[in-house]
Design a protein around this nucleic acid. Structure first.
Lengths: 351, 351
DNA sequence: TTGTACGCGTTATCAA
DNA sequence: TTGATAACGCGTACAA
């Protein structure tokens, strides 16, 4: 077993030919004689030669790797997106390097900075919450200015020159609410976040729009906007209290649209505590189709964000841009990915 | 805004000095005059100069990036491990490149192959199930022979020259079973995988050991070994059938130790279907503390694998080996990470 | 104090 | 048909 890694140089020396001959032989150039070619190839196979990626990257000024920066990785939506990115990237001969911002502005900047120095050809990212609230996007515009394209998904910044992949939260929420109404609900309640959280605001908007379109008056007792630093699992108990209070002051609610899984599960738990049955007394639809929904009791009907598709499209947009010869083409796209409702057992079947 | 990326060469030309002067000035070499230094530094800052990682990698024959290859990323345990890896790696100036095998032997080989050609300095990986059942590890030993170190975690191959990070599955399983017995269970059932899955086999062993140590005869009707390509969520229905059958042929079971979350939840579901109450009729302990356990109904008592720690230690071991000058040191370590039981509501409280 | 030359591994171009 | 050279961007030993 050759402990030394094979390079063109080593093969050349061993075979007593020049480096360029070896290179050409291996790439099957017709410049090289049949005999030499065979000799070189046999030797290369024996020594298990592989071209050195780094050298190629340096030469081609392309690394064929994508930098993905996300706020958090222990999170179903983001991992699904990564899955989609990997899948498409690999199929196109690209690798994926992952950076985590942990929702921190500084870590996001550092990540961007380290990777931008030649390690990657372009970024796919979802912005950290801190960055969003700081509204400081100079690191993003700077990397774009340096000629490194970015594709943003989900948490997106409006006026930034880059491709974007999003879900239409308003439409998705409308779908969910309509589904509840079609399933027979008379009073649909909403469990959302405070309005400063982007997705919460948009999904609330969708809720309102759906009701208005059906000519239903919006009862503010049916709307619950939770203060909730991070939709994590740690503050679950506090959430529970808030939701119980909400449900007990709006006894007539027979359908709930919750803007995420956790809220939906909390609502189900609270309802059950009040002796209500799901879906017979209250139907529930959540948002984001994660493991929780699938394994809830009963399994939760949800609006699927389609993370895999988001990832795939993001990778596609980025790679297309990377491989576009003319860098002039600055017609940035925003792709809206479709959502669909995954029917499970917290809603009645439609006939 | 400079659209062109700054290089030493460009700065040198612009300032009409030599490339090495610029290089030295930026690295604060005392060889360079104060004036020149300042001039160069100012210019570099203006042009936002950063050394090109790729060129450095080529020169140093080190990429300062770690390749992580895991079977699946939409999976709580693995993402927790990645989190730990990232955290330590970044603190040491390393990046992390992620490859997914999707439990496939071929994809694992391809991933290893593409990354091994200079893109990374070493691997951290958990082996695909298919690789495990094929028992074909030539790709692993070959990359090690090429001088690229591997650290394996969780799904580990015994006779392979590399560092390993594992949880003592036997002991952890024993703990779980003992906990059930201490909690009053008379007939503890096991839901595990077929024996060729390493962790399944070891946890089964722990189950058997715990019973033997208490002088309890092992009833083969109490043991269920599921055939299960990937513990994913897609084949849930099929799983359910198998578990239901198992439970109905062993009616006396009053405690279940399941080797993963999904199996545990499936068991709970099946038990409930049979009219049994949890924990009153059957107590349950799962393995791997993920979101599912936390939000199960009722919340599931589990053995926590401590993925973050596993990731951190893996990264530490790998980086230490990478930065070891003497490559001779082949005293490979196997670190055993401790597990603990997270008490929730599928077991009785101990007095 | 500054500049030249070299090498990391590869390929493209041009010369032999 | 083969070989030498340059270049990608960097750092450093050595020469000026």
């Amino acid at each position: 077993m050759p402990k030394q890694k094979a390079t063109l140089k080593i093969i050349a020396k061993e075979l007593d030919v020049s480096v360029s001959t070896v290179s050409k032989a291996l790439r099957d150039s017709k410049e090289i004689g049949k005999e030499t070619k065979e000799k070189v190839k046999a030797f290369a196979k024996l020594y298990n030669y592989r071209p050195n990626n780094i050298a190629l990257s340096l030469k081609n000024r392309k690394t064929k790797t994508l930098g993905v920066i996300i706020p958090e990785i222990v999170h179903h939506f983001f991992t699904t997106v990564i899955s989609g990115i990997e899948s498409y990237a690999n199929s196109q001969g690209y690798n994926v390097i992952v950076g985590l911002s942990n929702e921190s502005f500084n870590k996001e900047v550092i990540n961007l900075d380290t990777l931008a120095n030649g390690s990657i050809d372009g970024f796919i990212m979802s912005v950290a919450k801190e960055t969003l609230s700081k509204k400081d996007f100079h690191h993003l515009s700077e990397t774009i200015d340096q000629g490194i394209p970015i594709v943003m998904f989900d948490r997106v910044i409006d006026d930034l020159g880059c491709d974007k992949v999003i879900v239409d939260d308003v439409v998705a929420a409308e779908k969910a609410v309509n589904r509840l109404i079609d399933g027979g609900c008379k009073s649909v309640g909403l469990i959302s976040t405070k309005d400063y959280v982007n997705v919460g605001r948009l999904r609330t908007k969708g809720y309102e729009k759906a009701l208005k379109d059906k000519g239903i008056h919006i009862n503010e007792k049916h709307v619950c906007k939770l203060e909730d630093k991070s939709v994590s699992l740690d503050n679950f108990d506090y959430l529970e209290l808030q939701v119980e209070e909400f449900l007990s002051t709006a006894e007539d609610i027979d359908g709930i649209f919750a803007v995420n899984e956790i809220y939906a599960l909390t609502a189900m738990k609270a309802a059950r505590k009040m002796g209500k049955n799901i879906p017979d007394d209250i139907q529930v639809i959540g948002f984001t189709d994660g493991v929780l929904s699938k394994h809830a009791h009963p399994p939760l009907t949800t609006v699927d964000q389609n993370g895999f598709e988001i990832g795939k499209i993001s990778a596609k947009l980025l790679i297309e841009r990377l491989e576009l010869e003319s860098e002039e083409e600055e017609n940035y796209k925003t792709v809206v990915v479709d959502t669909k409702i995954i029917e499970r057992e917290t809603t009645f079947k439609l006939k």
